[in-house]
Design a protein around this nucleic acid. Structure first.
Lengths: 160, 160
DNA sequence: TATTGTTATACTCTATAACTATA
DNA sequence: TATAGTTATAGAGTATAACAATA
């Protein structure tokens, strides 16, 4: 699969099964890979890396402030976002200021420029997604996105 | 969230965007990761690795015979499936016989035992997928899977 | 003692190059 | 010369461990 499946954080090939219906992952994983492949040149054109874009999106949501919280929010190790933060800060896309209430922590914030870059990249990314969503009619598209959001939102609720 | 995206074959974190709607990849990638995480213990219980399962599924489809064709079919480098093939062969799940018409090539075939293992694992995997598909009603499920198959099938058709 | 951010190290997985034997 | 399969090497990306500063 991308057929790739993911363990640790690495990607593996996925089968397109011969069963009555293919495994969900076997359908989804190649699609994800294509979507990601389509995103990368767009991000590059906007001077962003994938991780950088991830961070900007998370900060723009405004739900995290510290590096530790950010790392958890994007499911990354706290050590592996540091370089990304360094670069984003150096480019003026984020700010990193000491937390006056906890001098160990540094508070992160997306800058106006960072938001502009992120929004511009995202707009182009979502236009590109029409290559796939355009295969669906209006009703299918509505149901698909609703279903997908529900399944994605179930993330933290499941029993195991 | 997985939040992982894929480049080369590696995984990256994905944003949950603040836009009108999240990026498709941001919705799909975490879901894929969860699906994969759910598959792994099942595969392990059946004595299979993810790559091994991928290979068995591909061979069971019967569309490829040589190692090179298999590698292409599962989007893997030809060098990185060899160990997997060695293991599968050693476990009696596949056969690898010289091609009488081209003595360079080795023809791959899933064995009856291999098919049993694959089918058993797949049945359990698809039962486990009900954790997600069960969130959809009958009509949603039908539309979702149809839409997904259409988008996944578009793989080789697109303009770029 | 625990936590935040950081750096340095080791490990996993992958791709690349090089080899052989055939074609 | 090109291709199928294989092996060995180097590289990218990640997690783990260890550290300083602060709580």
């Amino acid at each position: 699969m991308i057929c790739t499946c993911i363990r640790y954080g690495n990607a593996y090939a996925f089968p397109v099964s011969s069963a009555r219906r293919p495994d969900l992952a076997a359908l989804l994983a190649p699609l994800v890979r294509e979507l990601v492949a389509a995103e990368e040149p767009v991000l590059a054109a906007h001077g962003l890396t994938m991780w950088g874009y991830v961070v900007l999106c998370a900060l723009d949501r405004g739900e995290v402030r510290t590096q530790a919280a950010l790392a958890e929010a994007i499911n990354a190790d706290k050590t592996r976002i540091i370089r990304t933060l360094d670069d984003l800060q150096h480019s003026g896309l984020i700010e990193r200021v000491p937390d006056p209430e906890d001098r160990r922590a540094r508070l992160l914030r997306i800058t106006a420029q960072g938001r502009r870059s992120k929004d511009a990249a995202q707009a182009q990314i979502q236009r590109g997604e029409e290559r796939w969503l355009g295969l669906l009619d209006t009703e299918e598209r509505r149901v698909f996105l609703r279903a997908l959001r529900r399944m994605a939102a179930d993330r933290n609720d499941g029993p195991a």
